[in-house]
Amino acid sequence: MPWTTYNNVSIPSFMYGTAWKKEATTGLVLQAVEAGFTAIDTANQLVHYDEARVGEALVQLARQGITRDKLFLQTKFTPVNGQDHRLPYDAGATITTQVQQSFASSLTHLHTDSLDSYVLHGPYSRRGLGAEDWEVWAALESLYDAGKTRMIGISNVSADQLTLLCAKAKHKPMMVQNRCYAAFGWDKEVREICRTHGIIYQGFSLLTANSGIFAEPEMRALAAKYQTGLAQLVFRFSQQIGMLPLTGTTNPQHMKEDLQCERFTLSSEELAAIETIGQ
């Protein structure tokens, strides 16, 4: 069942992430779409992503009849401190220009004329928000106002930073994407802010950041009860607590299994138990 953002954009309830796929990116995106994923996440950042190879997959999918309008595309602007020497913009230009250049380059890579979601990969500041953060957010807002992206969001953001952004931005983010640790209550603070403001919370590294909980007898008992895998249990839990999960699995079987997690429903007691399991 898709989610709807506060500005009425529909977004699929599960997303395929393409980080660290390198030259396998194109093939894996094709497999993910074949498995049933309709939302793809990438970034214009060659350190961890290969956006152009996502674009190659989109071209092939279009030839198969799966056209751009049938897919939800999300990519990111990565500030210079998150890039290596392969920058998709002029590092000497203003941040506003860097965003415009990176966005244009993303459109070229992805063979499209607009995005569904454009995300700030992370604030410039470690704590609080500085002038650079406000400039970059204003640049994203301009793209949104111009209709070039249907939503804008922010990733790798702390609760304090998100509170600030929501309070002072012209457009508060429509989505947040964070690494989600069970040890920190599955990023509870940030999720609470998202809930208050009607922001979609996307969780990544749900499995790799939390493999420790797989050994918990309670998790194993729940997996057995619902006759499902531990990964599906985590994904279903995340959806039921209002999160949009990302998976980056490279296994076609796991892609299908992950999407099937919606076939069972955890009780509120079980959700509460998992929510505190890693703490």
């Binding site: 980080a19 660290w20 390198k22 350190v47 401190n81 890039q83 290596d84 980056g248």
Partner: peptide
């Protein structure tokens, strides 16, 4: 653990 190693390795040159 190629993806996690890649994530870490990506930080090193910077």
């Amino acid at each position: 653990k190629t993806e996690l190693v890649s994530e870490l390795k990506g930080q090193v040159p910077r």
